[in-house]
Amino acid sequence: MSDLALEIRDLRVAYGGIVAVKGISLDVGRGEIVTLIGANGAGKTSTLKSIVGLVPPISGTIRLFGRDLRGVPTHRIVADGVALVPEGRAVFSSMSVRENLELGSFLKREKAGREARLERCVRLFPRLGERLAQEAGTLSGGEQQMLAIARALMGDPKLILLDEPSLGLAPKLVAQIFESILEIAKSGITILLVEQNTRLALETAERAYVLVTGEVALQGSAAELREDPRIRAAYLGEDPAA
């Protein structure tokens, strides 16, 4: 049994003729928080989508807890314990918060377990608890992001893939969301976090990969990368001469 939650080797993803991911290799250990940072179009989202099988890779291998995912359909991968929180939140807006959460446990319908997980989500995000009957489309952006994360937790995942949870949110809410992410990690769930907010991502994660136009440009512990002058110049907006 591998002690890696996720093991990606030479992953290549293309849309038509355009290659978005050009041979990425990365590892995520069990219980780890790993972040994937980089500019727009660096291939972060494509990597996440290919992990859950939404975009089939053209080559390379993806192993989930030691098991090769080649040709495995999305719903099987999700059943094996991966949850994707898509970019832009993607809540089911005409449905109530409770219905959204219940769909999160689509595969695990037995009532007791579902109610227990729902309670856990409400404890993590008390705001959702107050709004269980409210239509999800009427929630604020931050609440929708909380809902998207909570919905992913409803499937009782071992690995959560978060795609830009800070996108379009007020700083205060972003801080709150990232606190919850740390809390989720504390409960033993492995997290792969895709972010453009480099500073926050490096503060939250243990290790990081920096993607530039579909390739891994830098990798290392988050603490190291925070001090790396190239990162400071390119992503943290600091003058390298200073």
Partner: peptide
């Protein structure tokens, strides 16, 4: 309804 609202998210919920 989930498929109508967001097909990618529905797929990510393991909805076939």
């Amino acid at each position: 309804t989930a498929i109508r609202e967001d097909e990618i998210a529905a797929e990510a919920m393991a909805i076939p």
